[in-house]
Amino acid sequence: MSTLQTLAAVGELRRDLQRKLTYDGLWAAEAKGNKGGRRPAVAADKTSAVRTAYLEARSIAALARDGTPGTSAVPAPSWPAASTRRPSPRPGSG
């Protein structure tokens, strides 16, 4: 076996071990009740209030003046039925 093959085999073993340990840690955290991922930047009640105001045709500038978080801090809504969508800002644009 050449040196290159030996190094490749060691690299594979290292990658497999790292993957196994990562998954073991994730499973252990899940068993303890920990949830992975980034925590929300804004509380859920505030997010829903901003989303509702936005869908009621309030402008982003008005939301910013009220001190509510900007749209970058609020997850994009999963759009409801067409009858409750926010109206188009310009006539004929949608």
Rank of each mutant, 00 (worst) to 15 (best):
T6Q: 15
A53M: 13
D66N: 03
P91C: 02
R51M: 14
V42I: 12
A73C: 03
A64I: 07
P91H: 08
A73V: 02
S93N: 03
S83D: 10
A43I: 04
A64N: 09
A73Q: 12
P80M: 00
R38W: 00
P40Q: 00
V42T: 03
A44Q: 11
A41P: 06
R39A: 04
V50R: 05
R51P: 01
I60C: 10
G94K: 04
A62M: 08
A57H: 14
A29R: 15
A81K: 11
K35P: 00
S59I: 00
K20L: 11
K32F: 10
K35H: 07
P69C: 03
A82H: 12
S88H: 08
Q5Y: 08
D16K: 14
P77Q: 05
V74L: 06
S88Y: 08
G70K: 01
S2D: 13
P69V: 06
D45V: 13
P91E: 06
A62T: 10
R90P: 03
G33R: 04
R90A: 08
A43F: 02
T84S: 15
G25H: 05
L7Q: 15
S48G: 05
S72G: 05
D45H: 15
S83T: 08
R90E: 07
R58W: 13
T22Y: 13
S88R: 09
G94H: 04
K46F: 05
A9V: 02
S72Q: 10
A44S: 09
I60F: 11
T52Q: 15
Y23C: 06
K35L: 06
L4H: 11
A29N: 14
R14T: 14
S59P: 00
V10S: 10
G70I: 03
S48P: 06
G94F: 01
L13I: 09
A61G: 00
L4N: 09
P89T: 07
R19A: 06
R86H: 04
A61I: 02
I60G: 01
P91Q: 09
R65P: 01
A81I: 06
A31M: 09
R14I: 12
G67M: 09
G67P: 07
A31P: 03
P75T: 04
T84L: 15
D24G: 07
G11Y: 10
G33C: 06
L63W: 02
A8N: 12
R90F: 12
E12H: 13
G37S: 04
V42D: 00
L55S: 08
T3A: 14
K35W: 02
R85G: 02
A28W: 12
K35F: 02
A31N: 11
D24V: 07
D16N: 13
K20I: 05
R15K: 15
R39V: 02
R51Y: 00
K35R: 12
A82Y: 08
D16C: 04
R14Q: 14
L63S: 01
M1E: 09
L21P: 06
T3K: 15
K46I: 15
